[in-house]
Design a protein around this nucleic acid. Structure first.
Lengths: 346, 346
DNA sequence: GAAACCGATGCAATCGCTTTCATCGAAAAG
DNA sequence: CTTTTCGATGAAAGCGATTGCATCGGTTTC
């Protein structure tokens, strides 16, 4: 339907329909109002008179005007844009959360700039810098940045939201849960199921380490010997399963359950175990993390730890909204908790 | 290391260290040069004298200056930012490609705005609009937009790159391959393996339909009866497997191979088949699409169609570079092809 | 009927950079 | 020794919006 004719028209004196894209002023001229009014119409239609609005709408249609957000953001010194920083896109535990956030942000007229930090601190730093340079309204990150950047962020008006984690003293605010508690609960759960020799697969990430820590402590507090362990690189993924399974088969005292850092890895282990003729969970239990959609659909279904990505997304949105209204935060840490979901694989 | 002291300093007359973030001018004053020089230093260090550069660097350090990209982009009317539009983040065939693109873009100082279009044309349109409003250098999309938007894009200076597809007349340029050819090759391949009754799982997307079309045509040209089919919603994912497998079991003439729209679905089918006691590929072949990392790691490994995501990413980067230099394109369509990778599952 | 108010709009000053053009001293060319 | 050339810098005009303040009819209010 929208089918703007060839730009030009019965424009006033200046035949300004050159080649450059139409500006607010062009629209204003066309609608015979000031550019201020057009701006108001665009940002707050309520304040302009019905009939004027109609004229402006027509002028926009006619000229094929597209607002220049760069100029608008500069003038208003806000960007309607948030940055999301995650380590990876493939094999990410966060995709579900991100997908929801992006959806909600977009729906509320914000845009999302995405940055992949990898595991390098430097990349994170430079991405934070880029985000600050764009004057984003908020930076959502799964990890902390360096101290240098922390202070940059602190000095700026930007809200820094760390998700999936609850550091002692967050730079901005944190929305997440205690990975140590998660590790502890997993230990208790496995103990309650009568498992004797868990094998931990941990990646070299702060979060994974915290879970491991929680697990170790509790497991030993429950009177067991320390569990065995495999280390994998980040991110924890399906493909790691072969090596991990090989590790296990090589051990003298075979583990009776494997605690994985992600559901994808858990899935991989199930596949490996089955390929080797083992039954899950009878011969080997497998526990995932993150409660990805697949865990409910795998055979056997995977026991996992659920983190409410939707809740995190909502809290993030709420935090941004509060921040934009200039309100303060009741608490700088929001614990969204986690839930161990018992299914068939353990 | 970077540890900017409390902003203020022995600044000249104006004690302008108020509360607002430092600007170019602040840095300039501090370094006793004009703001133009600081700007030059930032964008093209080569043109400023060694010693001046040092002073500026120091001033930046001292003030904790972060350039305002909004202002910069407005002034130079380019944004060093590209938009990437994909249907979903979870279960996306494109993640690998996107990850590479984001990596390369970031490395070359560009930022990436990500948009999730879902399957709605409207969402796509409004995201394109948002991208144009931000005056992105390029919009990379896996699908076309509406006509209305097409003309907006055409009118703008923005490069529109459609990936993973090769439409007759791309709006901007297209980097992809023929899905119809892929379907055809799959048909030939299965025929050459002696399969008789393929079952197609297709989603209601143009690309999936094109592949199906190619498959149907070739399969029948080879003298076979039309294959059976299951329809699933987008995106094609692991979880669809249960229903699809149930479909198959219910059929009178059981298929001997299932052609899936993604490796995740293929994985799901293998899991279902095995859970039902079937052996893959002996009792049932399974063919994936996209050559995700898992396909080489599954048991059995999954025969799939590989699309060179890295190549697409490179071509995209090259196209953007060419476009930024104002050069024209030799061709508006770049065929990156595809490769059928035979593994164990078929 | 004058004062106060109000909704709708215009004027013009920003926002923080980039970039053209001009300037200026020093080195190279004549 | 003058004239060019050149490298380094400054002055200032935008870039395209937003927004505080002023204006101006027309209502209300008393």
């Amino acid at each position: 339907m929208t089918k703007p004719p060839p730009a030009s028209s019965n424009g006033t004196e200046q035949g300004s329909s050159a080649n450059r894209p139409p500006t607010l002023t062009d629209v204003a001229r066309e609608a015979k109002v000031s550019s201020a009014t057009v701006s108001r119409f665009l940002n707050n239609p309520g304040v302009v008179a019905e009939e004027t609005g109609a004229r402006i709408r027509a002028a926009i249609e006619l000229t094929g005007y597209i607002p220049n957000a760069l100029a608008g953001d500069l003038a208003s010194s806000k960007s309607r844009m948030v940055a999301v920083l995650i380590p990876h896109l493939e094999h990410s535990l966060f995709n579900d959360m991100i997908e929801r956030m992006v959806g909600e942000m977009t729906a509320s007229g914000n845009n999302v700039m995405i940055g992949l930090t990898g595991t390098s601190r430097d990349r994170t730093d430079s991405l934070v810098r880029a985000a600050l340079a764009r004057r984003v309204d908020a930076i959502i990150s799964t990890g902390p940045a360096s101290e240098a950047v922390d202070s940059m962020v602190a000095r700026s008006r930007t809200l820094f939201i760390q998700v999936w984690e609850l550091p002692e003293e967050p730079v901005g605010i944190a929305i997440g849960f205690s990975h140590e508690d998660a590790g502890r609960d997993i230990a208790r759960f496995l103990a309650s199921r009568g498992y004797q020799r868990p094998h931990l697969v941990t990646a070299d990430s702060p979060r994974a380490q915290a879970r491991k820590q929680g697990f170790f402590t509790e497991w030993q507090a429950l009177g067991h010997a320390p569990p065995s362990e495999s280390i994998v690189d980040m991110p924890t993924r399906f493909g790691h399963a072969r090596r991990v399974f090989a590790d296990i088969r090589r051990m003298d005292e075979r583990p009776d359950v494997v605690v994985c850092g992600s559901d994808h890895l858990a899935q991989g282990l199930i596949v490996e175990a089955q390929a080797a003729g083992l039954r899950v969970p009878d011969d080997l239990g497998v526990l995932g993390f993150g409660n990805n959609a697949i865990s409910g659909e795998m055979r056997p279904t995977i026991t996992s730890v659920d983190v409410d990505g939707a809740r995190i997304a909502r809290e993030v949105m709420a935090a941004i909204a509060r921040h934009q209204e200039g309100k303060d935060f009741l608490s700088r840490k929001i614990d969204v908790g986690f839930r161990l979901i018992a299914r068939e694989s353990v």
